[in-house]
């Protein structure tokens, strides 16, 4: 069979791989959003900007300090996480007692500041970031050619997503997190320092965005607006999956990435909007989202 539905298999698998890579980023980003939302009730509009900051930290480390990809993979998420801690402690914390919409507005303002500042400093054009030596080249899978770096991105994101899932659903720390999401007052009354947990949760959630930024740097260029439109798609992913479930966020992210890839093959004009259309359909059929619970 040289053609599937009139499409050469190389093109099909190529687009599916691209979809899978996009899906990996959706999964990583929506996972972070879901963790933050669960604990803080904040829709983190700054998530896309912090993803961009992650990529930029990697680029800056390489350009000015000569720290390469592997170093950046550790340092950039830590840096973004630290920024998150500061934001939570100095700003978000003041808003927990008022309408949750203010958290969204605050983080929107922060996104404008981050994106505006980097744009002011580095312009809109992208900065290239090299693929690390170890992951150059590719593998011929017989039915398609797989660039090693892209395979690595999918594998690494999956690993991080599943690791996060395991940490939240199967460990003691995760039990604290789940309990505090449900009833923070009682968890505090058991002697756990919930405000610190909240800060760390936000830090961790945005660190995931930072990590996604580093992973993305060699694929897309490092540019100030790289997270700006991406984050809206991720919001749609989150609405489709529902905020209730960690695994739901991962599965929905990957699934929608693949669907987008398919759309690129069969109906390229619609590939940008397919996620939004699916969101509308899901909302009509199941308002709480595929994996969500009504709150």
């Amino acid at each position: 069979m040289s053609h599937l539905f009139g499409i050469p298999p190389q093109a099909l698998f190529g687009q599916l791989l691209l979809g899978l890579i996009n899906g990996s980023f959706y999964a990583l980003l929506s996972l972070g959003l879901a963790v933050i939302f669960g604990m803080l009730n904040v829709v983190n509009m700054a998530h896309g900007a912090l993803y961009m900051v992650g990529a930029f930290v990697a680029w800056l480390l390489l350009t000015y300090l000569g720290v390469g990809y592997w170093g950046a993979l550790v340092l950039a998420p830590l840096a973004v996480g630290a920024v998150g801690l500061v934001l939570e402690r100095t700003m978000l914390r003041r808003l927990y007692k008022v309408d949750h919409l203010y958290g969204l507005l605050l983080t929107f303002g922060l996104a404008l500041i981050f994106e505006g500042a980097f744009r002011h400093q580095y312009g809109v054009s992208g900065q290239p970031y090299p693929i690390p030596e170890l992951l150059k080249g590719g593998i011929n899978l017989g039915f398609m050619y797989l660039p090693t770096y892209r395979g690595w991105v999918v594998a690494a994101s999956l690993l991080v997503c599943l690791g996060t899932w395991f940490a939240i659903e199967r460990t003691k720390l995760g039990a604290y997190l789940r309990a505090a999401t449900e009833n923070p007052t009682l968890v505090q009354a058991f002697g756990i320092n919930v405000p610190v947990m909240v800060s760390l949760t936000y830090g961790f959630g945005v660190a995931l965005a930072g990590l996604a930024g580093v992973l993305a740097a060699p694929i897309y260029q490092v540019s100030p607006l790289m997270g700006s439109n991406l984050i809206i798609v991720v919001f749609a992913v989150v609405v489709i999956g529902g905020m209730g479930s960690i695994l739901g966020a991962i599965v929905t992210g990957l699934g929608l990435g693949l669907l987008e890839g398919l759309a690129k093959v069969f109906y390229p004009e619609a590939s940008n909007i397919v996620v939004f259309v699916i969101m509308a359909v899901v909302l009509m059929v199941k308002p709480a989202g595929l994996f969500g619970r009504e709150r």
Partner: peptide, 11 residues
């Protein structure tokens, strides 16, 4: 608040 239970008070 989180230190109170650590003194040995259960709620």
């Amino acid at each position: 608040q989180h230190r109170i239970p650590r003194l040995g008070i259960g709620y």
